[in-house]
Design a binder for these strands. Sequence first.
DNA 1: AGTATAATAGTCAGTGCTGACTAAAAGAAG
DNA 2: CTTCTTTTAGTCAGCACTGACTATTATACT
Lengths: 180, 180
Amino acid sequence: MIPLYVLGLLQRYGPQHGYQLKKTISEELEDFTQIKLPTIYYHLEKMSAQGLIAGSSEKAGARPEKTIYAITQSGKVAFIDALREQLSTRYRPVFPSDALFYFSEHLEAEEILQSLQEQYAFLQQSLKTIEQHKRQTLAFIPEEAKPMVNIIFAHHEYHFRAELEWVAYSLKQMKGEQES
Amino acid sequence: MIPLYVLGLLQRYGPQHGYQLKKTISEELEDFTQIKLPTIYYHLEKMSAQGLIAGSSEKAGARPEKTIYAITQSGKVAFIDALREQLSTRYRPVFPSDALFYFSEHLEAEEILQSLQEQYAFLQQSLKTIEQHKRQTLAFIPEEAKPMVNIIFAHHEYHFRAELEWVAYSLKQMKGEQES
DNA sequence: AGTATAATAGTCAGTGCTGACTAAAAGAAG
DNA sequence: CTTCTTTTAGTCAGCACTGACTATTATACT
């Protein structure tokens, strides 16, 4: 998934170095992915060795040289292949919190209930933030990109809402259990 | 999350070796986590070095020795700590398919639409499977465990339904876009 | 002009995970 | 009773990722 972003951004915005890629990802994709800078360098080097991108050391003035990477022809092919592979991967979520409920007899019900309530507040806040980011993003991007950006934001909204509803459901279940 | 499962199962079902743990996880938790056998051995060794579990080589008859691990006192403490830490971790999903839509101009709309339709069918099938597994599981476990198992299955149901609705939404959006 | 702070551009060692492999024991099939 | 398959039990090399660190340049502040 990270190689996809790197190849795609290199193709969309032209040759760049790692720090610039990280900045673009942080600004445009912060709600959807949290790629770390060393991870970008790792993939740049790997893809460079594979010939998917080509690095050139630029020495501008008295500055230390920095490596600027450009996507190659075989990189463009690999990019399309990777996109196409994404098409066939299926949804398979893993929720670490399941382990918590699976072993919940080791904690006080009261403690779990309280953390669920905090979780609920957090999710409500997150939903507001996402909606706000959506509005901001849609205001700044070109018209033709809007439908797809809308779909990506919707993806997160649907799942945050689902998580919110599940937390509400769990709270209801556990409270009912406690009383009986 | 994996150490949590290992420590919890060692405590619930008593001393075991790696293969047995893997079997239990496959049988009881296959819908919620897909832990691989080498990963279990990795954590067994690590936790053994940390003193959270204690291994003893058992040589029964002419069989090759196998290492049986038991949770220690400090392991029980670490288990509760890990459970409590789970309480404070927040929901933060990452969807690899977002990258696909972010760069969707590189693929034909027709190709994406078709894969979304396959995705839709897959999700419907998955939901049915989860509901069936839920019924089977609830029929076999002790009464007092039912509320929690129910909550875990509900978690997955809520999110599979959200994913299903999002795919439907995307299909609608993309078809509308195509016509205009 | 000197110095603190932020931005820029990385490196590297260590962690977590797993595919591919090995190998003994039990059970099934002829 | 011998061969084949399955189950049991594990090892190991290698990949993806990132926290912590380094080092230079630009900017702001005094």
